[in-house]
């Protein structure tokens, strides 16, 4: 395999708050090949969104990348001058957000907003911009795309608005798209459609995709590989089928058990007891230990990193590998 498109090594994004340092992302490493789809899964506050924003250099203060490197197409994005980072954003790395209602500007037509996204990176006449925008809208499945350019966001349904946002992300033909829970705000039926289309679009254009979600089910139908994050760290990763079939980390098991689709009918859904730990006061041991059914005194020490056959997990007492 050639050099990966994206190689994140020991990424640390901390929030320097008055109450102390919140280690939102603490030593995350992973890599991604061109055209690969990676699922990034975790609870709220696990650091998955901050990881995504770190990649495009848009961590809100007081957040800051304090260590590690993000090599993208041979260049380290950490410490890149702001103007070079800006030129990269939207052109080579694009991002789609959770709530299209909030991301699109309500007082500009979508044609104007798409033209701005194009003109940020190249001299494009308004007319050429409109043509390219219309073509992209048609590609993401918006009917009568050319006439809808003069519409405002509120004139679209929720699903259509997210398609517009996806079209904007695809406009400049990026090599990587970071999608931060883009289907969470949508109806279940629309979710499935968007997932399928997103996968098809990524495959046909060879775009790599990082799909951030709290929903393992969504990721399982989309991703090639999955990373499970907990308290700012990756606790398990591997090919999506294997991880879901035979998780090795008790946290992944807990996430799977809490999926309604996995439960026996008539049984109560199992949930992971307790809540995610405060990122301000993490012990050196396994952060999941207080909630873990398998935890014992060993877990006060940092968990070992076990890597085999393309799979990785950090646990003192991993679950048995599938027979």
């Amino acid at each position: 395999m050639s050099a990966p498109l994206l190689e994140v090594t020991d990424l640390r994004t901390h929030f320097l708050t008055r109450a102390g340092v919140a280690k939102a992302v603490d030593g995350v490493s992973f890599s991604l090949a061109s055209g690969e789809i990676l699922g990034l899964v975790g609870e709220s506050g696990s650091g998955k969104s901050v990881t995504g924003f770190s990649l495009i250099g848009l961590v809100d203060p007081p957040g800051k990348i304090v260590g590690g490197s993000i090599r993208f197409a041979g260049r380290d994005l950490v410490g890149l001058p702001p103007e070079e980072m800006r030129a990269l954003r939207g052109r080579r790395i694009a991002m789609v957000f959770q709530d299209p209602q909030a991301t699109l500007n309500p007082v500009l037509t979508i044609g104007q907003q798409m033209a701005l996204a194009l003109q940020a990176h190249a001299r494009v006449s308004d007319r050429a911009a409109a043509e390219r925008a219309a073509a992209m809208l048609a590609r993401v499945g918006i009917p009568e795309a050319a006439t809808r350019l003069s519409n405002y966001p509120h004139e679209f349904s929720g699903g259509m608005r997210q398609r517009v946002a996806i079209a904007m992300a695809l406009l400049n033909g990026p090599e990587l798209i970071v999608a931060d829970e883009p289907t969470t705000a949508l109806d279940v039926s629309i979710q499935a459609q968007i997932l399928a289309e997103m996968k098809a679009l990524a495959r046909e254009s060879g775009t790599a995709l990082i799909w951030i979600s709290h929903d393992l089910a969504t990721v399982s139908s989309l991703a090639d590989r999955v990373l499970v994050m907990y308290a700012g760290r990756i606790v398990e990763s591997g090919p999506v089928g294997e991880v879901l079939r035979a998780p090795r980390h008790p946290y992944t098991r807990g996430l799977l058990d809490s999926l309604p689709a996995m439960a026996e009918p008539g049984q109560r859904l199992r949930q992971i007891p307790g809540t995610a730990p405060s990122l301000l006061a993490l012990s050196p041991g396994c952060p999941f230990a207080p909630r873990c059914p398998r935890a014992d005194a060993d877990c006060d020490a940092p968990p070992p990193r076990v890597e085999a056959d393309g799979r990785l997990f950090l646990c003192h007492h991993p679950l048995e590998a599938a027979a």
Binding site: I56, R91, A102, N105
Partner: peptide, 25 residues
Amino acid sequence: TDTVKFARAAGLKDRTILRRHVLRL
């Protein structure tokens, strides 16, 4: 707002964001 964050994610210059997005908002 996410509107400004999204415009930044699209690679717009801050000056453009202020003039075209923020001023209208």
